[in-house]
């Protein structure tokens, strides 16, 4: 079973979002997603300052057998990326919700956070997928 922390929002594409005190939103991929991909060997991150609409491919996570786009859960401007992943992509495997975060963005519309999945709904998505 994969871990689904209570304090986060989710997408059905297996990204998570965390609202920070300064109004920015941190984005990563879920424990389920990192398990499905296997050991990551590379993470391609956007440049700081890049702007994305919700649903745009904003990063790529790559294992030896798969490569997956990460879609922006909400529109906005990238204000920080996790540079540690350049040398240590395995952090996404070992700590998907903490040290393995991907990027932080300033949402164009902060209310868009409310549209994302609650932990219960995301667990529902996972349950349906495993049927």
């Amino acid at each position: 079973m994969s871990e689904v922390p209570e304090n986060l929002k989710y997408t059905s594409d297996h990204e998570w979002c965390r609202l920070e005190d300064d109004g920015s939103v941190t984005v990563g991929i879920t424990d389920h997603a990192q398990q499905a991909l296997g050991e990551l060997v590379y993470v391609e991150l956007p440049e700081v300052g890049a702007e994305f609409a919700a649903g745009d491919a904003c990063a790529v996570v790559e294992s030896v057998k798969a490569a997956s786009d990460v879609y922006a859960p909400l529109g906005g401007e990238v204000v920080e990326v996790n540079e540690q992943l350049e040398g240590e992509p395995e952090l996404v495997n070992s700590s998907p919700y903490d040290e393995g975060w991907l990027l932080r963005l300033t949402p164009a519309d902060p209310a868009a956070m409310d549209e994302l999945l609650d932990p219960e709904n995301y667990e529902q998505v996972l349950a349906e997928a495993s049927d």
Partner: peptide, 14 residues
Amino acid sequence: LTLQAREQHIRRSK
């Protein structure tokens, strides 16, 4: 063979 995630059999249209 390495870095195969660049290639068509994994990445398909991308």
